[in-house]
Amino acid sequence: MRFVLAAAFTALAAPAIAAPCGNDASGFGAWKQAFAQEASAAGVGSAGLQALANAQYSTSTIRADRNQTGVRYELNEFIRIRLGSLDSFANQMRREQNKNPNFYASLESAYGVPAGILLAIHGMETGFGRTMGSTPVVDSITTVAYDCRRSAFFTPHAIAALMLVDQGGLGANQQGAAHGEMGHTQFLPGNALRYGVDADGNGRVDLYSVTDSLASTANFLRQKGWQPGASFQEGSANFRVLNEWNAATVYQQAIALSAARLQ
Rank of each mutant, 00 (worst) to 15 (best):
124 M>H: 08
144 V>S: 00
141 I>F: 03
120 A>M: 12
142 T>A: 02
137 V>F: 10
140 S>E: 02
126 T>Y: 00
145 A>P: 00
143 T>L: 11
135 T>N: 09
125 E>V: 08
143 T>A: 11
120 A>T: 12
143 T>I: 13
123 G>P: 04
131 T>M: 09
120 A>S: 15
137 V>K: 04
124 M>Y: 09
133 G>I: 04
136 P>D: 03
144 V>K: 02
127 G>R: 11
139 D>V: 05
134 S>Y: 14
123 G>D: 09
130 R>S: 15
120 A>Y: 11
145 A>S: 13
124 M>N: 04
122 H>T: 10
128 F>A: 09
129 G>W: 03
122 H>K: 03
127 G>D: 05
149 R>Q: 13
134 S>C: 06
134 S>T: 15
141 I>K: 03
128 F>S: 08
121 I>S: 03
124 M>D: 11
143 T>Q: 09
133 G>A: 12
142 T>F: 01
122 H>V: 05
147 D>V: 03
147 D>W: 12
140 S>D: 01
139 D>W: 06
124 M>P: 07
135 T>V: 15
129 G>K: 09
144 V>N: 01
135 T>Q: 11
134 S>Q: 15
142 T>R: 04
137 V>C: 13
133 G>N: 08
136 P>M: 02
133 G>K: 03
127 G>W: 00
125 E>T: 07
131 T>P: 04
145 A>C: 07
137 V>N: 06
138 V>S: 11
125 E>I: 08
139 D>L: 06
121 I>T: 01
144 V>Y: 01
144 V>L: 15
143 T>P: 05
123 G>V: 11
146 Y>F: 14
148 C>Q: 12
128 F>H: 14
